[in-house]
């Protein structure tokens, strides 16, 4: 399997606290990799390190073999990294389809000058981008009746799907999902799981950060367990479920690290 994103000895410290400590792992093409661990284990920090919200204090983040550790967020996004958020971040004032069109930003070419000197381009490009958005919305299963509604007014479950569609519209190499099932009922959760598998089978690498164990176990092809910022175990779902250290870590998960959770909140 081809590795899309690889982390090599990545660490991130906030003050004296190591939120992510010497993590090495690889996220491969065409599969769903789940990242699990107790609260404060460093999961969201890891997403933020891959997307570029934080720069690592040590180690390398590579995309398709290229070191992207120092690149700004928008450059990484244009290279094919897309993400969703713990609480859906719908762009205010835009309809769902326009939200998804915003995801296809990198496929547009018109800027200030073209808008002034070739205004007809705007409508033409808009309809091309809207076509891309429509495909993404269909793939992620947003019913057409919601497309022209303001995204912030949509039901929570639909917002999650719109957000996934927005990520798909970026035509990314990898999608990072931060707890996509939070706030959803079991039926909706199962749907999201199927959707993620389908996306991965289309040749994209999917990273799923999730607390919902049934979803992880049914969806993930590969599981990485973090605890206190370090990788505790890696393997197939069945291996992880049987791993005694993982079980111990989950039972002793009460003393969660609030400082890191707080640092992550600042970002969200």
């Amino acid at each position: 399997m081809k590795s899309i994103v690889s982390l090599e000895g990545v660490s991130k410290a906030f003050g004296g606290l190591k939120a992510v400590d010497d993590v090495t792992c690889s996220l491969s093409e065409g599969i769903v990799t789940a990242l699990i661990g107790p609260n404060g284990a460093g999961k969201s920090t890891l997403i933020n390190l891959i997307t570029g919200v934080f720069l690592p204090t040590a180690g390398l983040v590579k995309l398709g073999g290229v070191d992207i550790s120092k690149l700004p967020m928008h450059a990484r996004s244009r290279m094919g990294i897309a993400r969703t958020y713990q609480t859906p971040q719908m762009i205010h004032g835009l309809s769902s389809i326009e939200n998804v069109m915003a995801g296809a930003y990198r496929f547009g070419s018109h800027g200030l000058l073209k808008t002034i000197f070739a205004p007809w381009m705007v409508a033409k490009e808009n309809s091309e981008i809207a076509d891309r958005a429509a495909i993404a919305l269909r793939t992620s299963g947003v019913p057409e009746q919601w497309w022209d509604r303001r995204a912030t007014e949509l039901p929570y479950g639909i917002q999650r799907r719109v957000e996934i569609a927005r990520a798909l519209a970026q035509e990314p190499k990898i999608i990072l999902l931060d707890e996509p099932a939070a706030g959803l009922n079991p039926a909706e959760t199962a749907d999201i799981g199927r959707l993620l598998k389908q996306i991965a089978r289309g040749g994209i690498s999917v990273l799923l950060v999730e607390h919902d164990m049934p979803l992880v176990m049914s969806t993930a092809d590969y599981v990485v367990v973090l605890n206190f910022g370090r990788t505790l175990a890696m393997g197939s779902p069945t291996e992880i479920a049987a791993n005694p250290t993982v079980i111990a870590a989950y039972l002793g998960a009460d003393d969660e690290d609030e400082a890191e959770a707080e640092a992550e909140e600042c970002v969200a």
Binding site: T51, G52, V53, P72, M73, H74, S77, R78, I81, A82, R83, Y85, Q89, M90, I91, H92, G93, L94, E98, M101, A102, G103, Y105, R106, G108, H110, G111, L112, T115, V122, A123, E125, N126, I129, R166, Q170, V267
Partner: peptide, 22 residues
């Protein structure tokens, strides 16, 4: 109406969201 406007509104919502869409 175009991509510039969508980018502006994304920035107003959240600079992280805007950056992560490129």
């Amino acid at each position: 109406d175009g991509r510039f406007g969508r980018a502006l509104m994304a920035i107003k919502t959240s600079e992280v969201v805007a950056s992560c869409t490129g």
